[in-house]
Design a protein around this nucleic acid. Structure first.
Lengths: 155, 155
DNA sequence: ATAGAAGTTCGAGTGCGCTCGAAGTCAAGT
DNA sequence: ACTTGACTTCGAGCGCACTCGAACTTCTAT
């Protein structure tokens, strides 16, 4: 079956290292992946889906401790308490992610603004250089002030 | 001047700890904050603005090494190379932040979807419980299947 | 049959970004 | 005079999430 992956392939597919895949398994984030000759792991599509989801949680800042808790609940099955708590956890995390999201947007705006200011400064500096060059030819004539405020309390 | 802050106040204002403020200063992220009686620091508005900006960079994943580089460029002044490189750095970071942003949005959508599925499961479970309760009164009558697919390859 | 590549376990090591603790200075209040 | 408390430096320590290394087994190809 071409849909079963070796650990290398799983690593390539997820972007995790083989080390990390084994690490996740031994700490219990991934439950024991089936083995072929009682040694080599093979990863099934369902394993891959779960790992992809773990990556989403991690990359959005959920600590491994919490992911372990979630994994334990999932392992336990779909009894009402498990479902309720998993739902709660994801709601909480969604909340955190939403906050992070607006923070990122905020920062992105600031970054764009600063890049804009730097572009303006570059023009100013270029203009000043031109003026200087001009002065070398045509003394006495005074240059226009094209200087703009530099970004961010810069010295 | 009420606009000068003690380290405590600066910590409160930024959300950093006093430890972190001093740490940032000694590694060179913040350049030496002026002292009052040649010992106690006081933070000026411009220091605060810079720190706020640092926090934005950090919280959007810029490593401290890079921030140090940026800080060094800024310290150096507004010569063309410094400006050009700072601009470049922020452009690069903006790029990374934008990527992170879409990843977060992606994850947020997945989280909402899963929460939705869990809600559906809860209803299903409740319905099943109701059926069971009914059966206790009215044996023999068979219950409707209200079960829905559970989220994420759950066992 | 033998080399080499890919897999295994498990404990130890690493890098990052703080975080803490000890020992000391200084200013104000009782 | 003395306690209190906010500050100082500086090195050591910590928690997290990997990451690596050593020693070993197993499969595939020549």
């Amino acid at each position: 079956m071409t849909t079963l992956l070796t650990i290398q392939q799983a690593a390539a597919a997820t972007g995790l290292s083989v080390h990390t895949l084994r690490y996740y398994e031994r700490i219990g984030l991934i439950d024991p992946v089936p083995r072929q000759t009682n040694s080599h792991r093979f990863y099934r599509p369902e394993d891959m889906r779960w790992i992809m989801f773990l990556i989403k949680l991690r990359s959005t800042g959920m600590p491994i401790q919490q992911m372990l808790h979630y994994a334990a609940l999932r392992r336990r099955g779909d009894d009402p308490e498990s479902v309720a708590e998993r739902k709660y956890m994801l709601e909480q995390h969604a909340f955190a992610v939403a906050a992070e999201l607006t923070a990122l947007q905020d920062t992105l705006a600031v970054l764009h603004a600063k890049v804009g200011l730097y572009s303006a400064m570059e023009e100013t500096l270029k203009a000043a250089a031109d003026n200087r060059r001009e002065e070398n030819i045509d003394h006495g004539k005074h240059n226009l002030r094209t200087r703009r405020e530099p970004p961010e309390g810069s010295r």
